[in-house]
Simulated scan of single mutants.
Amino acid sequence: MFDEKRATRRGLAFGAAGLFALSACGTGDAAAEERVTVPEDAEVEQLRVEVLDTFDHDPGSFTQGLEVAEHPEFGTVFYESAGLYGESDARIVDPGTGEVLASQDLPADLFAEGLTLTDTDLWQITWQEGAALRRDPVTLDVVETVAYEGEGWGICSLDQFTAPKVAEAGTQLIMSDGSSTLTFRDPVTFAPNGTVEVTLDGEPVSQINELECVGGQVWANLWLTDQIVRIDPATGEVGAVVDAAGLLSAEDSPGADVLNGIAAGPDEGTFYVTGKHWPKLFLVRFVP
């Protein structure tokens, strides 16, 4: 599926005919072009996905961010950010059925990207509009809108983090912008606190998209690919690359876009993963 982000980033190099050809090729060719390769002598784990369970997911959701948390009314829920201009929202989803329990639309001129939870807030970022929405996690109401520079892709919250590249110790929001740079931000003010460059065997890794902070590490979808990487936020070094290809069956694949959406699962080492316009969501483990 040919999304607006892909059109903007890749379409500048093509005329109308080129854009049509790119959209017709689907996500498979683009994903093959963007995949990272682990050198044979690199000390990087190469992992695959073991599926533990499968759930229904709203195929209408252009998934940008995914979190699991407890809600005072609904119990255990997914918080999900869905993108596209005129279709973006923040939603609360029943994990077992995929039913949308509550949602709040964004204005039509905002393209929603990732979201993350802190102890008190739900932060949702936007793609090119430089607007971070601080929401009430119970009602999803927007409490405050904070401006930032650059693009917003993914975001996660890392507890009690200390590193030389960060100005302040403590809980940090970590945000991606599609480049090889991750930006640390204050969880209350959203002010930037520092950056780190993501590398694999010394080479920069870009297209970093949706993020999940767990166990002191950052797990990240690489946009346009079926890969997920594990990043040490203190150094930016990639310590593992996950090949998540083949999750969707042939029956479920038509109309589905790229892998995107990762959240820590109920047990240590488990994760929920899905994708843009995917009809399924999976509980998985990453294994050698």
Rank of each mutant, 00 (worst) to 15 (best):
G202D: 10
T126S: 10
T235R: 06
E113G: 06
L182V: 05
E210P: 02
P137W: 01
S249H: 02
V146L: 01
V196L: 09
E251H: 14
V198Y: 11
Q128P: 09
D141W: 08
T235Y: 11
L117A: 04
D177H: 12
E149C: 02
A220P: 03
A245M: 01
V205Q: 15
A250G: 13
L200S: 14
D119C: 09
A112Y: 09
V238S: 12
R134L: 01
Q160K: 07
D226Y: 04
V214D: 09
E113H: 11
G202Q: 08
F161V: 14
Q128E: 03
G170K: 07
A147V: 04
D243H: 04
D121C: 01
L173Y: 03
V146M: 01
P164R: 09
D232Y: 02
E151M: 05
D177F: 00
F111G: 05
V143E: 14
L173M: 10
S157A: 06
S179D: 11
G239R: 10
G152H: 11
A163I: 06
F161G: 14
M175N: 12
A169P: 15
F184T: 14
F184H: 11
G216M: 00
L115Y: 00
V143R: 12
F190G: 02
Q172F: 02
S176T: 12
L173Q: 14
A244C: 00
T120V: 06
L117S: 03
T195M: 00
Q160R: 08
R185T: 09
E144K: 13
T118E: 00
V166N: 12
L224D: 10
D109E: 11
G216C: 10
D226H: 13
A240H: 15
R185N: 15
G130R: 07
A112W: 08
G114C: 11
E251L: 07
P204Y: 11
L182G: 07
S206I: 10
T139D: 03
L117C: 08
E144T: 13
E113K: 11
V188C: 06
G202R: 12
G239H: 04
E210I: 03
G130S: 13
P204M: 05
V214Y: 05
L158T: 07
A250L: 07
A169I: 10
I208N: 15
F111E: 05
T199F: 03
P187D: 05
Y148Q: 06
T235W: 06
G215C: 05
S249C: 00
L222Y: 08
V188N: 13
T225L: 09
P204K: 07
A234L: 00
N209P: 14
D243C: 02
E203L: 08
A191Q: 13
G178T: 14
D186V: 05
A244R: 01
T145Y: 03
L182H: 12
W219R: 05
C156W: 04
T235S: 15
W219G: 07
G236A: 09
G215Q: 06
E251W: 00
T183C: 09
V229T: 12
R230V: 10
I228F: 00
Q207T: 15
A147T: 12
Y148N: 09
E210Q: 05
